[in-house]
Design a protein around this nucleic acid. Structure first.
Lengths: 253, 253
DNA sequence: TTTCATAGTGTAATAAGTACACAATTGTAA
DNA sequence: TTACAATTGTGTACTTATTACACTATGAAA
């Protein structure tokens, strides 16, 4: 929560530079040590968790705004970003309206009105991210998919909706390129799918299917290191990957 | 285009009642005589065509706003409506900004600013619709999918995006209930799919597939009338249809 | 009653998805 | 050095979906 002085400054700046009534919320997915993770913010001195978000500059395309917001939270310039839904319940930001209602009169108070939020989800390279809290937060951190804290406002709804969308996308888009390192083993890639879907997959069938997409190259040298047979290393065939991204996997009708 | 007096009245009303910077545009699909159709508006004394659209009331959920807007254009209370994408290019409403810029000072002019538009598509019963032009338009009319005029602003992009989304949805959702009459023949339903997809399908395979979804009931009595074998009549099994709507058709992963 | 238009139906071939088991390789500990 | 544990690579039979394709049936009009 902002102090009165902070609110005055924030509001003045925001009212001048941002499009009123519009916000952006991002669900940022990363993958590390066999676990899917989401980037969350925790406010100062409170156990209140939020999705990273922000507003749209007056002359800024909304996708650019989402990239800018993510750049600020993660340090990353190029991420896979996709809008997936608008959240426009009139009461969705009521908590924030009420929080600041007494501090500033309505016509000066950035948080006095309703915000309709555009939901984006991002797939990012875990190691590329340097989490930066925003001015409302003391902490910006990864949380495991199966250890998400209670989220404020309607952010749980937004997060769940993003995950559902991502699961659906698995059926007609490749997604690993933005989440995996350059080289990876088949079991590692399988783990990514399993953690997104929240269920186990059959090793052999997974391999056949994913290879069938034709977006992987196998390198000659396997990776050694464990007390077991050395797995092959794979990397994405960028050309085919890009093609699959735009064309989709299976025809349907 | 509004006259100055109209603009003053419209702006005053809109600025009081609607959420600024947000608009809604609807792509309304109907089906009649084997042709997929879209509902379009034509402005007074000009050959300018638009998608039906509107704004969000101050305390109104966005889905409700979309329903209200559609109710005003079609007279229909219950339609299948789905948001599919946000269009937020800062220049997208530039033509309208410029059109009215000299008539009213910025702070009073509803059309002075940028509008970020939430795209909805609707599937409606063709015969239920009584098209009502809005105050900008002299005509509200159905146009065949293969005879869409040039559209103003970014409405062509919105329309095409809606159609693409609809085509994708065919793969994991039933869609006919909102477009077909109570009873229909298999060839009629096939025509719907063909006109959405813009291509011919095989009769026998279509039938097997659609029956496989388990959302159709066949009535005993066929429909007579043509100089050919009388086709069976089908209707949707609402319970299964509803289930398929929420659960989707095929599993994928 | 013949003909035309269009509906109903089935089957073989191919491709995709599922379930399941054994052999190979690496590092570690006996 | 050898046996073992862990985990990888690979193949096959079975089932289910998809595709391609052709004949028979019926109702109305000539």
């Amino acid at each position: 929560m902002l102090s009165k002085q902070q609110l005055i400054e924030y509001s003045e700046d925001a009212r001048k530079n941002y499009v009123n009534h519009i916000s952006i919320d991002c669900v940022v997915f990363g993958f590390h040590e066999g676990q899917m993770k989401v980037l969350l913010l925790k406010t100062h001195n409170e156990e209140k968790w939020y999705l990273p978000g922000g507003f749209v500059l007056n002359e800024e395309p909304i996708d650019t705004a989402a990239h800018r917001i993510l750049q600020q939270r993660t340090g990353l310039d190029e991420v896979f970003l996709q809008q997936f839904r608008v959240f426009g319940d009139p009461d969705r930001s009521k908590v924030h309206n009420d929080m600041y209602v007494d501090m500033l009169p309505k016509d000066q108070n950035w948080f006095s009105g309703r915000f309709i939020s555009i939901g984006y989800y991002a797939l990012v390279d875990f190691f590329g991210v340097i989490p930066h809290p925003d001015q409302f937060s003391e902490l910006c951190a990864w949380r495991d998919l199966d250890d998400i804290p209670e989220l404020e406002l309607d952010h749980e709804k937004i997060y769940k909706n993003a995950l559902d969308t991502l699961r659906l996308q698995l059926n007609y888009q490749p997604i690993g390129y933005n989440l995996m390192p350059k080289e990876f083993t088949m079991p590692e890639l399988q783990k990514l799918y399993e953690t997104i879907l929240g269920k186990k997959l059959d090793r052999r069938n997974f391999q056949r299917r994913i290879l069938g997409f034709g977006i992987l190259n196998r390198s000659e040298e396997p990776r050694k290191g464990g007390a077991h047979k050395a797995p092959y290393l794979y990397s994405f065939d960028l050309e085919n990957y890009q093609y699959a991204l735009t064309e989709g996997f299976k025809g349907g009708w």
